[in-house]
Amino acid sequence: MAFLDILVYPDKRLRQRAEPVTVFDAELEKLVQDMAETMYAAPGIGLAAIQVNVLKRVVVMDLSEEKNDLKVFINPEITPLEGTQEFEEGCLSVPGVFASVERVERVRINAMDVKGNPFELETDGLLSVCIQHEVDHLNGKVFVDYLSRMKQDRVRKKLLKEQKESASQAA
């Protein structure tokens, strides 16, 4: 197992579109394991492969307090069903920033597990928010994009400044 490096906003690589997974092999299983490990260490509740610079449509998630309920979504597709909800979201690629984002309340998820078996579920609440957030990542989108231009600027400057500071400290 290994901890992977998480790309930090406004890294351009977060803007790429991930490719569907076609091969379900040991390499994919290792990626999922490493991603889970990285997510738990962060600590986070969801991680998309693109955030660790892997251009595959892979999402790991664990919403439980006990960190014992790992969910894996390969090639996830979302169908919006009904309602809207607002939730204060944060992102491992945008550390320290939390902002309220409006999402669809109830969605249907079609995805595959790590072996390639398809499954379907309907959900609302945090799982719904989280999967929408992660699928955005797979499409090159970050939750900051939903904020006003002014707030986006502020986030960008804050993170660039922090990155500069940590770089100079390292040097």
């Binding site: 509740i45 969801g46 204060e88 944060g90 992102c91 491992l92 939390f98």
Partner: peptide
């Protein structure tokens, strides 16, 4: 996604 904001809690 990051854990919900502890600051907010």
């Amino acid at each position: 996604m990051a854990k919900p904001n502890p600051e907010k809690d």
